[in-house]
Design a protein around this nucleic acid. Sequence first.
DNA 1: CAGTATCCGTAATGATACTG
DNA 2: CAGTATCATTACGGATACTG
Lengths: 126, 126
Amino acid sequence: MNNQQFDLSNWQSHGYSCPVEATLDIIGGKWKSVILYHLIDGEIRFNELKRLVPGITQRMLTLQLRELERDGIIHREVYKQVPPKVEYSLTSFGETLIPIIKSMLHWGIEHTEKIVQHREQAEVKD
Amino acid sequence: MNNQQFDLSNWQSHGYSCPVEATLDIIGGKWKSVILYHLIDGEIRFNELKRLVPGITQRMLTLQLRELERDGIIHREVYKQVPPKVEYSLTSFGETLIPIIKSMLHWGIEHTEKIVQHREQAEVKD
DNA sequence: CAGTATCCGTAATGATACTG
DNA sequence: CAGTATCATTACGGATACTG
């Protein structure tokens, strides 16, 4: 089986050993893909996002958003009003990541059940 | 824009807030996607893998491989001989992850350059 | 509301040495 | 060759309190 339909010989490494590593550098954070997933449907406010991702702390949410912003993946729109309102959205560059997020979504939908069962069996053997 | 073409109301959470989180739990490790990427083309021996992923230490490689094996993603074939030979390969379940890995690969190939440039600019502003 | 600022624990990762 | 074992370090992430 040869699934490698690309010639990687010209791929400039920039310190990465392969393109997958580079991608991981952008969306590799523990929460980044989840954040991006929620942003697919449109802009979201900070506290909305916090509700959508129950496991994350306020601090981590801020940090991950800042990194995504720095990398040009998301846009941060601040509305000058009291109380403040900040909306996050995907940039057009960020939208190029949607196929990745979608494939992760699809996989999760189809295989989570199996994974959970598998892990429970593994625990018994421990 | 409504990209959510799936009804998630029936998706059993199993402790995850969304399917993406579940997927991340499987391939979220710093090196797992890279390892899986190399396994797409067929089985690979331990030391080959170490060469293909220069950044990883022997210890981390072992740990990540063990986790992938535990989750049923890869198969570990031990040849009883001296010197020992161990080959890793994707299970059929592991192969269901290929679309995700491929989309990460494609994205990396197309956008790494841009990311690197973007980061260099960001550094100047610091 | 949307954050910062501190402090702190632990899990993740690394370095090095050793082995069936 | 394909790992373990041990120790050290760091980075990740959490809890809590405070603020424009």
